[in-house]
């Protein structure tokens, strides 16, 4: 069996197990390629029936407009329920302090909105597109990851996960985070997208864009949420995005790759890891992701 077929079969098995074990699962959708791939896999898992769970989007208010358009079209085409939680509303309602700085990241704040959604909709399983190859704390994550009532991840108390047996038994108030593409790498995702002809938001492909240069020679996209200063070095560059997070914390990479073949070629030769190249929130400390996860983040 070809390795992409193996990864696909495993992901479909996990999605079906989630639908079989839980009362109210949800698929967390960000508009990025990993969650788009998840939706495609879910379509395959339940065809010809509709996907038996809603899409849930935690909207930071700092999204690429292309990702939001894509999200709305996808939900309409597949006739899926789309549940959107607004981080801005959470901030206002709970009197939280909004993200600060030149590139204000609501990454940590979105955990509050996610936990609110889990509670108000009584979701017992949240399916996410996180992959173990992304980051070292994620490399230790289970496929079914039990979270406490407070959404917290306890790495030392994880359940052993044997063979293809997924233990989703939980107490009331707890929930499970499910990661069907845990064993995929960035390159696997791109090869699969190409093989399956999956459409993506335009920002993944090389395009001209106004960017601000930051330290390390990286480029941040100009957006209404970035605090512009007179000393900013702004220029127009041919770029694409390797990941699609918030516009305030996702860096662009210089690229001529305007189709899938060129993107795959580019990734094979990339010297820098996916998150390292594109996420300014993970470069803050060695344990940034571990801390966010313990706090209820994905």
């Amino acid at each position: 069996m070809n390795y992409l077929d193996h990864l696909e079969a495993e992901a479909i098995e996990i999605l079906r197990e989630t639908a079989g074990q839980f009362e109210r699962p949800a698929l967390l959708f960000s508009g990025g390629k990993d969650s788009i791939t998840l939706v495609h896999l879910a379509k395959k898992a339940f065809f010809p029936a509709a996907i038996p769970f809603p899409l849930v989007h935690v909207d930071t208010g700092h999204n690429f407009p292309e990702a939001i358009n894509y999200r709305d079209q996808l939900a309409a085409t597949l006739n899926l329920e789309l549940i959107v939680g607004s981080v801005a509303e959470t901030i206002e309602k709970r009197g939280l302090q909004d993200a600060q700085g030149k590139f204000p990241s609501r990454n940590a704040l979105q955990t509050h909105t996610l936990l609110e959604l889990v509670e108000s909709h009584r979701f017992d399983a949240c399916i996410g597109g996180a992959r173990r190859d992304e980051e070292k704390a994620r490399a230790k994550e289970r496929i079914f990851s039990v979270r406490s009532e407070f959404g917290q991840w306890e790495p030392k108390l994880q359940r052993p996960e044997l063979w293809n047996i997924y233990n989703g038994a939980i107490h009331p108030g707890e929930n499970v985070r499910v990661f069907p593409i845990s064993n995929w790498t960035e390159l696997d995702v791109w090869n699969y997208i190409k093989r399956e002809h999956i459409a993506l938001p335009e920002v993944y492909f090389a395009h001209e864009r106004e960017v601000i240069e930051i330290e390390g020679g990286r480029w941040m996209p100009v957006s209404p949420w970035v605090k512009r200063e007179a000393s900013d070095k702004v220029s127009k560059q041919k770029v694409r995005f390797r990941t699609v997070g918030d516009m305030t914390c996702t860096a662009a990479v210089a690229s001529e790759a305007d189709d899938l073949d060129k993107i795959i070629e580019e990734i094979i030769h990339a010297k820098i890891s996916e998150r390292g190249a594109t996420r300014i929130d993970d470069t803050l400390s060695e344990a940034a992701m571990e801390d966010r996860k313990k706090n209820g983040y994905f």
């Binding site: 190859d133 490399a139 230790k140 030392k156 994880q158 064993n183 790498t185």
Partner: peptide
């Protein structure tokens, strides 16, 4: 090492 780490 405390927990299984997966590498690709």
């Amino acid at each position: 090492t405390i927990d299984v780490a997966y590498k690709y």
